[in-house]
Design a protein around this nucleic acid. Structure first.
Length: 474
RNA sequence: GGCGGCGUAGCCAAGUGGCUAAGGCGGAGGUCUGCAAAACCUCUAUUCAUCGGUUCGACUCCGAUCGCCGCCUCCA
């Protein structure tokens, strides 16, 4: 199967055919940097990071852009509230954003353009919209005239007339239609501004994405992604702007991830169920968080709770544990030759099929656990024929292989200790082993208890003891 | 009101017009072990919200009903 994705624009699953063969140009609506990003924001960042890596794994040359909106009402409001400049606020949270995505194991996008670095392009695009009759100026503001764009509503399935009926009463009745939206806002005293043909002002919310994505990815690009809530008005408006300004189709495939809820309710500050990704990362490893998202299809709503996270953690540990056990066994069987195993190859094909079918990570995970099960069966039977060793090796290679895009297996399966700590822990474990061989149970148990108290679990296996960081209670 | 989505075991969650409805968590047994812990193995839905219809056959297609949710306003 070739890669298929569900396209919001057509509401169908479609075969993915890039504009340029073997190249994928994709854009994700990134953060508005006015605060730490929350656990709901983490979903698209993680999922589309996995998609990007998966497409690369499948042989595409991927160019991935995630913008940073660093000028916006929310930033200005925060700056005013804290008596700082908007740019200070934006700088602080841009830095925090990069720290957080690094911690999440998200690969840096190829480009992370900031809106304020594209002011000239934004102004040019607005001028084009005016020249082409899609936008009009009103006392220093510029509005997009929705009615002028025939395709308006094609992404969200909204009908202009119905929208009009339900539109809120706009304070600004100078607009030709209540639906018209600002592409340029004149600056009020104390607000940041840029010089423009319409006076001092700043861009409206949607224009920066249209401009940066078109500019950096070319006239028509392949994938534009974001949360479902962005379909309207943000992405609808992006289309109107980009296609109004240029004539060529904006984007081929629109992908939207489902919402994250907290204990069944929408996350909001007023409900007091608001979590930043930082807070969660302080309690759980990034790999667990990635696992949590990967266990469900990206388009479904997902419910966030500690219980779900703990489940994901248990599930992930099953994989990590098996990998470790395979390694312990393979260490005794060098040079088994090429690891070709037909059954495992079929499993791999099934996993790839699942991923190709609208990026079904939940199904792919199911296959992964089947592999884990077959490895565990071999290990449980203690039947290390050459054939079985080859199978174990093949499973190991596959797990490591797909981790290239899943990013769920910690670098050192034993935990986050550096080589120094590992050295001493190995030594202690060895000494304790000798004590046990000498039947000095008291001392052996003391070592076990003491290590336990600093978060290290000891496991006594048949012929060796191993230590691991206690993943759970951090 | 308009648009869209969802309802699968105790919980989470894939999936399919027809061979045994993936997988995970939890639970119950068991193996291993100096004792533990951990780990592993086995078992855990005659059934897919309800009621009709289409069909040789539906959980999967169609219709209705009930329930839940999202968007239409800033929001990933």
């Amino acid at each position: 199967m070739a890669f298929h994705i569900y396209n919001t624009l057509t509401r169908k699953k479609e075969l993915f055919e890039p504009v340029e063969p073997n190249k994928v140009k994709m854009y994700l609506c990134g953060p508005t940097v006015y605060d730490f990003f929350h656990i709901g924001n983490a979903r698209p960042l993680i999922m589309f990071d996995v998609l990007r890596r998966y497409l690369r794994y499948r042989g595409f040359d991927v160019r991935y852009v995630v913008n940073i909106t660093d000028i916006d009402d929310k930033i200005i409001n925060k700056a005013i509230a804290q008596n700082r400049t908007a740019s200070e606020v934006a700088t602080e949270f841009t830095r925090a954003y990069f720290q957080d995505i690094d911690k999440l194991g998200i690969e840096r996008p190829d480009l992370s353009p900031r809106a304020t670095d594209f002011m000239r392009d934004i102004i040019n695009t607005i001028q084009q919209l005016i020249d082409r009759g899609f936008a009009y100026e009103l006392d220093g503001d510029v509005y997009y005239e929705v009615e002028k764009f025939v395709g308006y509503g094609k992404l969200s399935g909204k009908n202009i007339n119905e929208l009009q009926a339900g539109a809120r009463v706009d304070v600004d009745d100078r607009k030709r239609s209540p639906m018209d939206f600002a592409v340029w806002k004149s600056s009020k005293p104390g607000e940041p501004w840029w010089e423009s043909p319409w006076g001092k002002g700043r861009p409206g919310w949607h224009i920066e994405c249209s401009v940066m994505s078109s500019k950096l990815l070319g006239g028509t690009f392949d994938i534009h992604a974001g949360g479902v809530d962005l379909i309207f008005p943000h992405h609808e408006n992006e289309i109107a702007q980009a296609e109004g300004a240029s004539d060529c189709p904006f984007v081929h495939y629109w992908m939207h991830n489902g919402f994250l809820n907290i204990e069944g309710e929408k996350m909001s500050k007023s409900l007091g169920n608001f979590f930043t990704t930082r807070e969660i990362l302080a309690k759980y490893p990034a790999e667990v968080l990635r696992m949590f998202f990967l266990l469900k299809h990206y388009r479904s709503p997902i419910n966030f709770s500690e219980e779900r996270i703990l489940e994901s953690q248990q599930a992930l540990e099953r994989i990590v544990e098996t990998l470790k056990n395979i390694d312990l066994i393979l260490a005794d069987f060098q040079d088994v030759g090429a690891a070709t195993d037909e059954t495992i190859a079929n499993q791999k094909a099934a996993l790839i099929d699942a991923m190709d079918d609208d990026f079904n990570t939940a199904s792919a995970m199911g296959t992964l656990f089947e592999l884990v099960k077959s490895a565990n069966l071999i290990i449980a039977e203690n039947n290390f024929t050459k054939e079985n060793i080859v199978t174990l090796k093949a499973i190991r290679e596959l797990l490591v292989d797909v981790n290239e895009f899943f990013g769920i297996i910690p670098d050192k399966s034993s935990g986050t200790f550096g080589t120094d700590e590992s050295f001493y822990l190995d030594m202690l474990t060895e000494i304790r082993r000798e004590l046990r061989d000498a039947r000095q149970w008291g001392m052996a148990d003391t070592i076990r208890d003491r290590l336990q108290s600093i978060g290290i679990e000891l496991e006594d296996r048949k012929d060796k003891s191993i230590w691991k960081r206690n993943f759970n209670k951090k």
